[in-house]
């Protein structure tokens, strides 16, 4: 399963742990932070629909 993790703010220890545990068995994990760097929103839309599952963390 391809999973996209979107981070709206800097992840705390709980979110980091959950993503790490989930990543252990996922075929492909992509992490997209929104709070730092430049976000390519058009590409993000493509990524959202290209992944099997999307989790938009806090």
């Amino acid at each position: 399963m391809r999973v996209l993790h979107i981070l709206k703010s800097s992840p705390d220890e709980t979110v980091e742990k959950l993503i790490n545990y989930l990543s252990e068995t996922d075929d492909e994990t992509t992490v997209q932070p929104l709070f730092s760097g430049t976000v390519d929103w058009l590409r993000l839309v493509d990524d959202i629909f290209a992944h099997d599952k999307v989790i938009c963390w806090w």
Binding site: K8, V39, W41, L42, L44, V45, I48
Partner: peptide
């Protein structure tokens, strides 16, 4: 695309994503 907005912190992100998804 469904977007649930339950926080008052991220309107900028919602607007940016909506504009991009609309353009697509």
């Amino acid at each position: 695309l469904g977007i649930l907005v339950g926080s008052d912190k991220f309107l900028g992100y919602v607007i940016q994503l909506t504009k991009a998804a609309y353009a697509k």
